[in-house]
């Protein structure tokens, strides 16, 4: 396999792969780093783990594309450093590359502390990868979410229930029963302004009072995932 010439994805009339970032109009050919992590993923869990090999596990499914991510962690109880992180995914190339990179970021240099590891944003993974197309940002979010779930499970397991962070869903539009999580998801699926959001979710149509808050959430999640 030659590693240099990055080339675009193949496309077909069946499903068109997106190789152009619709917002920056940049062509995306997977970077050498993405390729390296995609073709040689790091920290994969290849065998059934031994009973005490890990302290906790987190599994999430992506509401965007239906993919599944599984993350296992081993934590040093004294320092709270993540000494081992392994993963598996039923996901696309970007999910494989992003999770591989995330696993390296968390475990390199003797491992980050849980507090620091939780500070890693999907944006940071993307930077280390040298970019992913916008449409693929939700794939890196998958690693992040599975990790958060594993950490929460860890805190439960060691009795530190107060450290568990739950991202509760908050209802934004009561008539449509739409929560901030729905808005987050829609942003990840590409609804980056109020008009697209309303097309997707009908949010705020029957409840105009909710619109300022919706716009604020769009800005917030756009910044969180797209960094602008």
């Amino acid at each position: 396999m030659e590693d240099t010439n990055a080339k675009p994805l193949t496309t077909s009339d069946m499903q068109t792969a997106d190789v152009v970032n619709p917002h920056t109009k940049q062509k995306w050919a997977y970077s050498p780093i993405v390729k390296e992590h995609f073709f040689h993923p790091k920290n994969l869990l290849l065998e059934e783990p031994a009973p005490d090999q890990f302290d906790a596990r987190g599994t999430v499914g992506s509401p965007a594309c239906g993919d599944v991510m599984d993350i296992w962690i081993k934590v040093d109880p004294a320092t709270e450093r993540v000494v081992d992180l392994k993963w598996k995914t039923f996901g696309c190339g970007s999910a494989i590359a992003a999770t591989s990179m995330f696993s390296v970021m968390v475990t390199e240099n003797d491992g980050l502390t849980l507090t620091d590891a939780l500070k890693i944003k999907p944006q940071d993974i993307m930077e280390r990868l040298g970019g992913l197309p916008n449409r693929k940002i939700h794939c890196s979010v998958l690693a992040d979410k599975a990790f958060r779930k594993a950490v929460n499970n860890y805190f439960h397991a060691v009795g530190k229930h107060d450290r568990v962070e739950v991202e509760g869903a908050r209802v934004i539009d009561a008539r449509m029963n739409i929560t901030d999580k729905d808005i987050e998801e829609a942003v990840l699926e590409g609804a980056l302004n109020l008009e697209d959001m309303q097309k997707k979710l009908k949010v705020g149509v029957g409840d105009p009072a909710a619109i300022p808050e919706i716009e604020q959430l769009i800005r917030f999640y756009k910044e969180k995932y797209f960094g602008a």
Partner: peptide
Amino acid sequence: NIAAHSAFVEDGVPHW
């Protein structure tokens, strides 16, 4: 039956 059903419960099922 989605395969990893428990993985989806909190975050919602696939959008389609």
